[in-house]
């Protein structure tokens, strides 16, 4: 049986199901218990699992992140709720110097099975410190896995896989998608890491998109289809590990690629995927690989400005048209 539920509900279900299954799982973060987080994603969990397992912390991100690492090393499977992705900068030492490296530095002796759930996404009019999409920063660090669900279905399946993984996993939920509904099976399912989803098949251009950018790419593909351009849309679902083969196979078929991610464009997820395409499908490329990330400026507050900074379906469609027409987008 499949029903339509919100991404928020999908996350809530994933956590509840896993916590029922495994008593070593607990969740900690700011205002996660009775408040159920500002986005109400966790509402109802404390009623079922109590404050022993749904733990409200002080506003001490490095503190509770570090505690999750220690708990994970000693038999627990903590889920950390980081209220905004922007707060990643506060937990960098605990996440990147401790959690990510412990297994390696100990020669495989210690494991850190923890999940860091956080969010990303601009256009909520929250300005520069509550709107960032920082997936590239953690994806850069060896030892961390990074998942980016694009719908309620992915959110549930990837989160359950993350909770069962013996490594630190960071999941970025797009905070603008919490109320978006998608069909989600009632039966249990998991989505394995490193397996991209071909959302739409096409022959002229490959659109590789993450998280909410998958919707943007699908809208662009609709527009392009009406103009006779056939776009393939690929959702990698996890950026670490990255299902390179599916992307490369697609680009070898279409000869053109646009990579879309909401992180800043420079040194970002789009740059990494574009580079791998250039390396592994070079002789199959009939156009330069185009990156589309967030503009390289801090996210501005004013709606008039903020909307200029994120990739849009019109922008994707226009770039696709240009490379399919054989225009060098940046020809000298």
């Amino acid at each position: 049986m499949t029903r339509e539920i919100t991404l928020s509900k999908a996350v809530n279900e994933a956590i509840a199901e896993e916590m029922r299954r495994d008593p070593t799982i607990f969740l900690l973060g700011e205002d996660v218990a009775e408040a159920g987080t500002p986005f109400k994603v966790l509402s109802g969990l404390v009623e079922e699992f109590g404050t022993e397992r749904i733990i409200d912390t002080p506003i001490s991100e490095p503190g509770f992140m570090g505690m999750a690492v220690g708990a994970a090393m000693t038999g627990s499977r903590p889920i950390v709720d980081l209220m905004f992705g922007d707060f990643l900068y506060l937990v960098m030492d605990q996440l990147c110097n401790q959690a990510a490296k412990t297994h390696y530095m100990s020669g495989g002796k210690l494991k850190v099975p923890l999940v860091l759930r956080t969010n990303m996404g601009a256009t909520r009019r929250s300005a520069a410190q509550h709107s960032q999409s920082l997936q590239a920063i953690v994806a850069h660090i060896p030892g961390l896995k990074v998942a980016m669900p694009s719908s309620a279905y992915e959110a549930k399946g990837l989160l359950k896989t993350a909770i069962r993984d013996d490594n630190p996993v960071v999941i970025f939920e797009d905070k603008l998608m919490y109320q978006d509904k998608a069909p989600v099976p009632e039966e249990e399912y998991l989505i394995p890491f490193g397996q991209a989803n071909i959302k739409r098949e096409g022959r002229d251009v490959t659109l590789v998109a993450t998280s909410s950018m998958v919707q943007v790419a699908e809208e662009a593909a609709e527009t392009l289809a009406r103009e006779g351009i056939s776009a393939e849309v690929i959702d990698p679902r996890t950026i670490v590990p990255l299902d390179e083969q599916t992307i490369i196979d697609s680009v070898r078929k279409t000869s053109r690629a646009i990579v879309i991610d909401e992180g800043h464009q420079s040194y970002g997820v789009t740059a990494e995927i574009a580079a791998r395409i250039s390396e592994k499908a070079f002789y199959h490329l009939d156009a330069p690989v185009i990156r589309m990330g967030a503009m390289d400026v801090p996210v501005p507050f004013s709606p008039a400005l903020e909307d200029l900074t994120v990739p849009t379906s019109e922008g994707v469609a226009e770039n696709a048209r240009r490379i399919c027409r054989g225009e060098l987008v940046h020809a000298a």
Partner: peptide
Amino acid sequence: NLGANAIVGGSMGIATGAALSAKRLGK
């Protein structure tokens, strides 16, 4: 021994988290 740590103060969270683990798991 949960490990030495090359970040000064870097293991304070880990130690406290291990204690949280003990309490939560009833060890």
